[in-house]
Simulated scan of single mutants.
Amino acid sequence: MAKKVKFTNVNKSTFYATVRKRVDTYFIDNALSTHASPAMWFKAAFFLGILSGTYLLILFGGFDLYIKLILGIILGMSGAFVGFNICHDAIHKSFSKHAAINNTGSLIFSLIGASPYVWNICHNVVHHTYTNIAGHDEDIDVAPGLIRFSESETVNKIQRYQHFYAFALYSLSMLSWVFRKDYKKFFQKKIGEHVVVHPKVEYFNLFFYKGIYYFLFIVLPLLVMDITWWQFIIGFLAMQFAQGLVLGLVFQLAHVVEGTSFPLPNEEGNVEEAWAEHQMRTTANFSANSGIAAFFCGGLNRQIEHHLFPKICHIHYPEIGKIVKQTALEFNLPYIESITFSDALVSHYKTLRRLGKESYEENPYINRSSCMVTRKISAAYA
């Protein structure tokens, strides 16, 4: 059984204290709030408008089937962008200083298919603490037996080709999230090695808000739209695949690219470096200077800044990123970044190939003999 992981900071690093002080000084000197700015509120209104407008056009616009299919794809992508730009910050409580506003933003997460409560545990608590640590960070436990992200896991024959099929599997992520993932995670005794005990109200919330989502995106469309059941299934899957692919790519490009590490604790369960330094070695940015990426990705293209300062609204990441990068250089720490989205995509592809095909071919005898002990293959996104 895996031990509870601790970060021991054996080198007595002052990196985090230094960068945090500099970032605090930036906000004080510029008289800025760490929460949403007017630009952030504009983004929130824009993406909510696109999401709700597209949904209503599909239901009541009277368009032909091909236009509805295109609108379904746009609806799926819009759901991902709402999640990135509103819900993600709200669940981190960085959108606003007012709990009611953050709670409302979190509630929207339920309306695009995911449980904010389960996400808070999996992402805020587990992923942000134990980034890229196998057995603890379940974000790298994707499609067990099919996708290998950790060098500590035995590679099997199928994973030799993961650099080809992984992207298709990412498109299944939202479909799994809607019908499987939240239930599975909720009823696990542990998420990673984090033991969870749920308040009773969350049992009600899980099923109640899932029910609302199923009504809005399955029952109501079938009631009001003049389409057959199989036409609905095609449109529904197109929406889910579009949303899943956007989500999968943005999240994986932040941690599974060239240069990021997947450290393991020692026998005592210790990671012998400071938590902040661990984040610098396991996290990457892409398209950091792109205004388009910043607008659509909700700061998730700047995961380094997000992991160090999750309580700061992402609208501020471009400015504090300058501070983080300079401080990292001073402390001789990596600042991993891809200049463009395509650079990050290529880097992710190469990493998948290295962890799959190349790892298998390095020692095929061991890998072939150990295939029987690999985890059960699951085509679903964990």
Rank of each mutant, 00 (worst) to 15 (best):
I140K: 04
T34K: 15
F42V: 12
R148F: 05
N9E: 08
H198T: 03
E193F: 11
N132T: 04
E277I: 11
A166H: 14
P144T: 02
E202N: 06
A166K: 12
M225S: 10
N285C: 13
A2I: 10
T8D: 06
H92G: 06
Y130R: 12
G291T: 15
F215H: 00
I339F: 11
F341N: 06
T154W: 11
S37W: 03
P144H: 00
A31C: 08
N85R: 00
I73G: 04
A379W: 15
R302P: 09
H163R: 09
E267I: 15
T18A: 00
Q252M: 09
A274V: 09
V142H: 05
N266W: 04
P318T: 14
M174P: 00
I320E: 10
L107S: 06
W41L: 07
E305H: 10
F149Q: 15
S261K: 14
P318E: 13
I158F: 12
Q162K: 03
Y214H: 04
Y335G: 06
E268V: 08
L206T: 08
L220N: 06
S78N: 01
Y26V: 09
Q188Y: 11
N367D: 02
V373G: 00
L65Q: 08
V126L: 06
I147K: 04
A276Q: 12
R160Q: 07
S106V: 05
P116T: 02
V246E: 09
G61R: 01
M174Y: 08
E273Q: 15
L300N: 15
H194G: 00
S176L: 07
N102F: 02
T14E: 14
I112D: 00
D64Q: 08
D137G: 02
I191P: 01
V5S: 07
G72T: 07
P265K: 02
I377S: 10
A134Q: 05
H136M: 05
F286Q: 03
Y117W: 10
F232T: 09
F236H: 08
A276Y: 04
F179K: 07
P144V: 03
T154V: 15
F295K: 07
R302S: 14
Y335D: 06
V195M: 02
N11G: 00
K68D: 13
S261M: 12
K68M: 13
G298T: 08
N30R: 12
H92L: 09
W119R: 06
C87P: 05
E151P: 14
Q159R: 03
Y360K: 01
E330D: 13
L308C: 11
L51C: 00
L175Y: 09
N120E: 11
I339Q: 14
V5F: 00
G53V: 10
L65E: 01
H136Q: 07
K200T: 14
A90Q: 03
K68E: 13
